Simulated scan of single mutants.
Amino acid sequence: MSVLTLGRPSVDASLILGGMPRVRLLPREVGEGQKTRALRRRLLAGLVVIVVMAILATVGATFALFAANAQLANEQSRSALLAASRAKYGDVTKLQSEVDQIVTSQPLADAGEILWAPYVQEIQSSLPAGTTITALTAATATATSVTASLMPTHIADVKITADSPQQPISDWLDNLAKVKGFVAAIPGSVTRVEDTGHYTVEVDLLVNSDALSERFAPVKAAKK
């Protein structure tokens, strides 16, 4: 007697090689279209990124240009202000320059200067009692004139004529040796004045650089 068995037919397990079988029912063109659209989306996204970057770069360059122009305008404004200031204070600058030149030239102008008024007073203070100066001339000496005259080195020659109550003038010569800048006192002629009984005496006073005024000489710092 035959027995019928209902159900799924038995399948040989050795024939099952993988998972469930799949079947693509859509046409091949549909799959390729999907790939094409995905590629287009990626290209479009890349294009958008490039455009955004270009816009940002353009904006940055524009701002940099504006900043450079603003800085240039600021520098031009400062230059114009400085030029106006120089023009405004040009006279002051010129005056200061002239003052500096005067200050620089003062020691040169003063190099051979002797203040004769106070120097003559110093000579008068050396006169003995009763003696007065009747004539006085002063002249600067040059190296050539000093060499030619065979006199001691000096920068000025003061010729003094005086009226003395006595013939000897040794006391006066001793006093002249104390005068500032003294080099030598050379006595000249001695003449008796018959009307007064006095004597007209002549003395040649040689003076060195110690007699210079040095009004504009630099002030030396005090030693500590």
Rank of each mutant, 00 (worst) to 15 (best):
M1R: 07
M1I: 04
S2I: 07
V3T: 15
L4C: 07
T5D: 05
R8I: 03
P9V: 15
V11T: 10
V11K: 07
D12T: 09
I16A: 14
L17G: 08
G18D: 13
M20Y: 08
M20H: 09
M20G: 03
P21H: 12
R22E: 13
R22G: 09
V23H: 06
R28C: 05
E32Y: 04
E32R: 13
Q34C: 08
Q34S: 05
K35H: 11
K35I: 11
A38G: 08
L39Q: 13
L39D: 15
R40M: 09
R41C: 04
R42K: 12
L43W: 05
L43F: 03
G46D: 04
V48G: 08
V49Y: 01
V49R: 10
V51N: 02
V51L: 12
V52H: 01
A54Q: 09
I55E: 10
I55A: 15
L56W: 11
L56C: 12
A57Q: 10
A57D: 13
G60Y: 12
G60C: 03
A61T: 11
F63N: 10
F63Y: 14
L65Q: 12
F66C: 02
N69L: 14
Q71L: 15
Q71M: 10
N74F: 12
N74C: 01
E75Q: 09
R78K: 14
L82V: 13
A83N: 05
G90K: 08
L95E: 01
L95Y: 06
Q96F: 05
S97G: 14
E98A: 15
I102V: 10
T104G: 00
T104L: 07
T104R: 05
S105A: 10
P107D: 02
A109D: 01
A109C: 00
A109H: 00
G112A: 03
L115D: 15
W116F: 14
W116C: 00
Y119W: 12
V120F: 10
S125F: 03
P128M: 03
T131G: 01
I133A: 00
A135K: 10
A138F: 06
T140V: 01
T140N: 08
T144M: 02
S145Q: 13
S145V: 06
S145R: 03
S145T: 12
S145A: 12
T147N: 10
A148P: 00
S149W: 06
M151D: 07
P152C: 05
P152H: 09
A156Q: 06
A156H: 01
V158Y: 11
I160V: 12
P165H: 05
Q166M: 04
Q167S: 08
P168L: 08
L173F: 07
D174Q: 12
L176N: 01
L176C: 08
A177M: 02
A177G: 06
V179E: 01
F182N: 02
V183R: 02
V183W: 07
V183S: 03
G188Q: 02
V190W: 00
V193T: 09
V193K: 08
E194N: 13
T196F: 00
G197M: 11
V203T: 15
V203G: 03
V207S: 05
E214M: 11
R215E: 06
A217D: 09
V219I: 15
V219W: 03
V219M: 06
K220Q: 13
K220E: 13
A221V: 11
A222N: 00
A222H: 04
